[in-house]
Design a protein around this nucleic acid. Structure first.
Lengths: 218, 218
DNA sequence: AGCTCATGTAAGGAGCGCTAACATGCGAGC
DNA sequence: GCTCGCATGTTAGCGCTCCTTACATGAGCT
């Protein structure tokens, strides 16, 4: 009825104008609704009001669209994490817990992005942009780990890379197993954010950070 | 040429005999090769040497086969974990580290099962058997956590359920991000098993378990 | 104005999920 | 011991998706 040329704000005719952006949006919506597998190239085209062949002018195939979504996801992810980290202010521990909450919030609020990034099976080197965005996101985690480790006496510092991997693994584990919008596959005695926060506190305690020397606000 | 009625050990004719089992095996192989999405009902049928409609006599639809594979996966998983835990012998910490290695070994050696269980998007209540098997597997983790926690003085014991969730999250995070057969999506300075072992040691340290009181063999 | 080229459409082949109707043969009951 | 029922297989076919190829349109440049 109304998908084409009727919308007053976009009186496009034969040429859509910015089909690529709209396809990405449609893909995000579909992935969010029906999972990364339920997403269909043809349906995204339908949503954008174009023929099923039109998307192929912008993406080589379905996988390339998914990779593009994943890359945008990593960029948004990195932006959210770096905003939460805020260069470690006011102190690394406070900022670190903000970071953890931001991680889970992203996985929870942007399930479509998170799915495309981690659960759609998109190989990281599907495109250089994807690889670069993923690397930037991980670099953020690593920076935060370094700042926390710097608080330890020189002899007791674990490798920052290892700590960053631990942080990532635990965050992803909590998000993947318990952090979905539907409450995860299993009822929890606490929220995913609380679970991650508690886990990271214990982990940091094990490293010798927190509780004893630095601040422990609220 | 030779898929049907020719194999000497199974001289089946019109009726296959145990098609259901063979379909599950075929599904496992396909999932292992091409991921849970690359798996195709029709191709599984082809592998078993039957027509594409035959599988519908044994599974309502593709999702039911996947759920069956996932349930068998959880059963094998629970068996592997419980074998590794071995009732906490010779001491809970030693057994616990064996458990961690067994978790990763399962994810690494049975990627098809692990995919079906955690990455195929099968809802846990797709079948009662699936739910039950998954619950049994988790109960094993919880038991191990309880045994470790019991070593702590009564005042300092965290909830066993929470600890089990932490263990599960970290294990799954490491397995999903770094533990795949292809080495994961990112080169690591250490093996996934070492990464998990180090992470769990730090976590236990944070709880006050290990390093100080109990044994730390090999 | 006329050309060019990016961007759209139409048509069609191959493959898959699933259903319906038909075929086969194992085993239960007379 | 024969027959019939029913589980388990088959073929045929619908509707859908992915993707390719050939054609249509119109925006911008010269």
């Amino acid at each position: 009825m109304s998908w084409k040329r009727d919308r007053p704000e976009t009186p496009r005719g034969y040429h859509h104008g910015n089909l690529k952006e709209e396809l990405v949006k449609a893909a995000l919506g579909l992935i969010g609704e029906k999972g990364p597998n339920g997403f269909t190239f043809a349906e995204a085209a339908r949503m954008a009001g174009v023929s099923p062949a039109a998307p192929y002018r912008h993406f080589r195939d379905r996988d390339e669209l998914l990779a593009d979504v994943a890359a945008r996801g990593f960029e948004a992810f990195e932006a959210a994490l770096s905003r939460a980290w805020d260069q470690g202010r006011p102190d690394p521990e406070t900022a670190f817990h903000r970071l953890g909450r931001a991680y889970l919030a992203f996985a929870h609020d942007e399930p479509a992005y998170y799915s495309a990034m981690f659960e759609a099976g998109v190989p990281l080197d599907a495109s250089p942009e994807l690889r670069a965005a993923a690397d930037r996101a991980f670099a953020g985690l690593r920076q935060a780990s370094e700042a926390l480790i710097a608080q330890l006496p020189a002899g007791k510092r674990p490798p920052a890379l290892m700590m960053a991997l631990h942080v990532w693994a635990m965050s992803h584990g909590v998000a993947a197993l318990f952090g979905r919008a539907d409450g995860g596959r299993r009822p929890l005695p606490m929220s995913a954010a609380e679970l991650l926060e508690a886990g990271m506190l214990i982990y940091l305690q094990g490293l010798g950070i927190g509780g004893n020397g630095a601040s422990k606000p609220d």
